[in-house]
Design a protein around this nucleic acid. Structure first.
Lengths: 255, 255
DNA sequence: CAGTGGTCTAGACCACATG
DNA sequence: ATGTGGTCTAGACCACTGG
């Protein structure tokens, strides 16, 4: 028993199912919960009652209830953790990423707090893909960096960055102080660099991505691939990132 | 009875369910069908056997089978039409859209045939949103254009374009001949224009979008908003488009 | 009319996480 | 040991589409 993690258990307050409306029961449930999330009555991180409770409360089967919950999970509003419970995920008050600006510059226009977690920083050998993107030979020494960005408490972005190791002998030291890639560039004499290419595609969260971003596996996501080049147009960084579909908007060429 | 629309009914050939593997039954079914689609054994437009047939053939409940089918629908591989059947949708061999190029220039790099359908061309009054995007007063005369693009037989893109009517008195005539917006611009003395801003976000297909794109409602999609401006930086076109998530990749700033 | 997919019920067992 | 979400069964009725 978890005590009463959320004393009011308010998730379903005020829901009464119309007996035979034009819309399916699961959609009525879906709409009701979504409404309570978007209105803020259910806040991010809050736990919902168990599926059995909710199904009994509504007089429907778990199967029916789960239709609604699964849709809400696919849309990024809820996260389920097996053996634990279902939680409000959100925000996802969409915010904008402008091409050519740093992550922090983009976020700063928002009021919420932003955090960076470095999950991996290691030297490795380039595989086929990363070698190609960096313009080096397969097997060359590269540096791998995996970071997760949090908006408030919610992870909203995970990315893997790859660097040609020979350009950055002091990567770890330069990075360590402020977790800033720009610092690393500057420390190695690269004061101007440029976003050479950005590719945006769509996909579905792998189990690994889902765990990091606190999503249900199979949730739709943005996949972003980008290359940064130095003044001589040599590639100094290749980034592969993943965003929940509903958390972000990409802006190109704006004012 | 539809006769045998696909004589072999090959959708499930060779599938035998492992009794208690590590992966759920529905995922085994999912993987099997997806494999047959991607290998080309199931071709676009082909109809699957009915759910009852397939469920019986596999010795599972429809509920279990539908788990697999629904996932495949969300990913854009299958389309279900109530009262009719389930069809292979595909392609979606992803193809790339480069910013700043016309749709046709982008597609021509692909081998498949491309078609344009004009679903609507009308004069109207600007609502709040379109007025704001076009930089005109709400209620001003505007021109609305809705088009669908097909790759092969599959609709892969629907968009609504809005134009300030006062700039294009002869829109219909200039457009009619080749269904070309560039022609309209040229006919009104606009020989150079520029993509001022592109915004990419994610969402889920509305019933209307789903019908047009032959998707299941709720399928994840890209939403693209863009503005074109003339030499004087006045907005001459605002576009709102919708792509199935798995059909396209957007490329910015490439070679 | 018969066949289709969409919805729903009332059970059940499982793996998992927590206390 | 308990409660959680994940999976699955064996039925059922419905609305829709087509011939």
């Amino acid at each position: 028993m978890l005590g009463q993690p959320n004393s009011p258990l308010t998730a379903l307050d005020g829901l009464t199912l119309a007996p035979r409306q034009d819309s399916p029961i699961w959609q009525q449930i879906y709409n009701h919960i979504l409404g309570r999330i978007e209105s803020g009555e259910l806040s991010p991180g809050e736990q919902l009652p168990g599926e059995n409770h909710m199904a009994a409360r509504l007089g429907v089967t778990r199967v029916t209830l789960r239709c609604a919950l699964q849709q809400l999970q696919k849309e990024g509003h809820l996260t389920a953790r097996k053996g634990v419970g279902i939680f409000v995920r959100s925000p996802p008050a969409v915010f904008s990423i402008r091409d050519g600006r740093s992550f922090r510059e983009n976020i700063d226009t928002h009021s919420r707090s932003i955090a960076t977690i470095t999950r991996l920083l290691a030297r490795d050998q380039a595989d086929q893909t990363s070698a190609h993107m960096l313009g080096v030979a397969a097997g060359s020494a590269i540096i791998r960096l995996r970071r997760v960005r949090l908006l408030g408490e919610q992870p909203i972005y995970v990315n893997d960055k790859y660097f040609p190791a020979h350009r950055f002998p002091d990567f770890e030291d330069a990075y360590g102080e402020r977790q800033s890639v720009s610092d690393v560039f500057r420390a190695h004499g690269i004061d101007t660099f440029r976003r050479a290419e950005t590719r945006i595609s769509g996909g579905f969260a792998s189990p690994e991505e889902a765990e990091i971003l606190q999503l249900t596996p199979g949730t739709p996501v943005f996949r972003v691939n980008a290359r940064n080049t130095d003044r001589a147009k040599a590639t100094i960084e290749w980034t592969r990132g993943c965003w929940p579909l509903t958390s972000v908007e990409f802006v190109f060429g704006a004012s």
